Simulated assay, not measured.
Amino acid sequence: MTPMTRFLDSMISPQPIRIVDLKIDSSKLSIPSLTINEMGHLPGRTLQRSQATFESWAFLYIAGGSGFYRVNQGPVQHVEKGCLFFVFPGSVIDFGPKEGGHWDEYYVRFEGSRIQEWLGSWLVQTDIVKHVGFEEAWIAQLDAMFLLLESGSPTQIDGAALQLEAMLFNWMAKSKLPQGQATTSKAVDVLQDIATSLYSPLNAEQLANRHHMAVSTLRRLVSQHTGYPLHDYIHRLKMEETKRLLLSTDLPIKEIADALGYPDESYFSRLFKKYGGLAPRHYRARS
């Protein structure tokens, strides 16, 4: 893990802050190509950073308030609620709330070879503020990642890294959406929420409440945009994630099932065979 400049809590914010770091040796993780080293929630942040340098990547998501961001003495960019920006090695960065102001910040610090793959495809213009909007569902996903990281379980920590990748991918895609597509945008938000919550319990009523809609509307929206009923769609996504874990990790099938919310391994195996054509162990062995 790479070091990070530390400040007293009282220097960062007058409110209580939450910081969770990696509690196990990274060699115990099954996905070495992407590791979350630290997460933080800094409500009411007042601290500004000037001429700051970083030894690892991090994203900062602003859930309230406003401020500024500048990379390598470039133009000063406005930051407000619903904005995302990055800090990264090799650059000098100024950022923070406006003088006398504050913002509500979530950050995730991460490293690994996976980042270079992102930079070669979908992670572009990392020195520009992204306007991705605000959804309570994203705060719920970040809170779930906190719990996974502080669990101390390698499987759960790997799950947090996978959620990080999905969340960033979806945010970057959302930042490129054309304007004036309200229904499509709402559907994208719902589908992104589902895709980044595969390691968390998915309850239709809670999901609908997060997006301020009736459960019947939620079910109709998912069916219209995917062609599948809500729970069928969720099962399909989880089975695709299972395939990826079976091929890219040595995790026991029982651990994969538990991580994805299937405590009954027999039911999980039947479900996987229904969607994948083979039992999990046969799928792994064949590949």
Results as ranks from 00 to 15, higher is better:
residue 87 V to F: 03
residue 97 P to V: 11
residue 89 P to F: 02
residue 73 Q to K: 14
residue 86 F to Q: 09
residue 80 E to G: 11
residue 68 F to P: 00
residue 97 P to E: 07
residue 84 L to M: 04
residue 71 V to G: 05
residue 76 V to F: 01
residue 67 G to Q: 07
residue 75 P to L: 05
residue 85 F to K: 05
residue 101 G to R: 09
residue 98 K to T: 06
residue 74 G to W: 05
residue 83 C to S: 15
residue 82 G to T: 02
residue 96 G to A: 10
residue 82 G to F: 00
residue 67 G to W: 11
residue 92 V to W: 00
residue 92 V to H: 02
residue 66 S to L: 01
residue 82 G to D: 01
residue 87 V to R: 08
residue 85 F to L: 12
residue 103 W to G: 03
residue 68 F to R: 05
residue 103 W to P: 02
residue 77 Q to L: 05
residue 76 V to P: 00
residue 84 L to I: 02
residue 90 G to S: 04
residue 75 P to D: 12
residue 94 D to M: 08
residue 68 F to D: 00
residue 66 S to N: 15
residue 77 Q to N: 08
residue 82 G to Q: 02
residue 79 V to S: 07
residue 80 E to R: 12
residue 74 G to K: 07
residue 88 F to P: 07
residue 94 D to Y: 11
residue 96 G to W: 09
residue 96 G to S: 09
residue 103 W to L: 14
residue 85 F to C: 07
residue 96 G to R: 12
residue 78 H to M: 03
residue 91 S to M: 04
residue 65 G to S: 06
residue 85 F to M: 05
residue 92 V to E: 13
residue 90 G to F: 01
residue 76 V to I: 14
residue 80 E to Q: 14
residue 68 F to H: 11
residue 84 L to E: 02
residue 77 Q to P: 08
residue 91 S to N: 15
residue 78 H to I: 02
residue 67 G to T: 10
residue 83 C to K: 02
residue 71 V to P: 04
residue 90 G to T: 03
residue 75 P to Y: 04
residue 95 F to S: 06
residue 77 Q to S: 06
residue 85 F to D: 05
residue 97 P to G: 12
residue 101 G to L: 07
residue 95 F to W: 13
residue 90 G to C: 03
residue 72 N to S: 13
residue 94 D to E: 09
residue 96 G to I: 08
residue 89 P to S: 08
residue 94 D to A: 10
residue 102 H to Y: 14
residue 68 F to Y: 14
residue 88 F to M: 15
residue 95 F to Y: 15
residue 72 N to K: 05
residue 97 P to N: 11
residue 103 W to F: 15
residue 93 I to S: 09
residue 100 G to D: 13
residue 84 L to R: 04
residue 75 P to E: 13
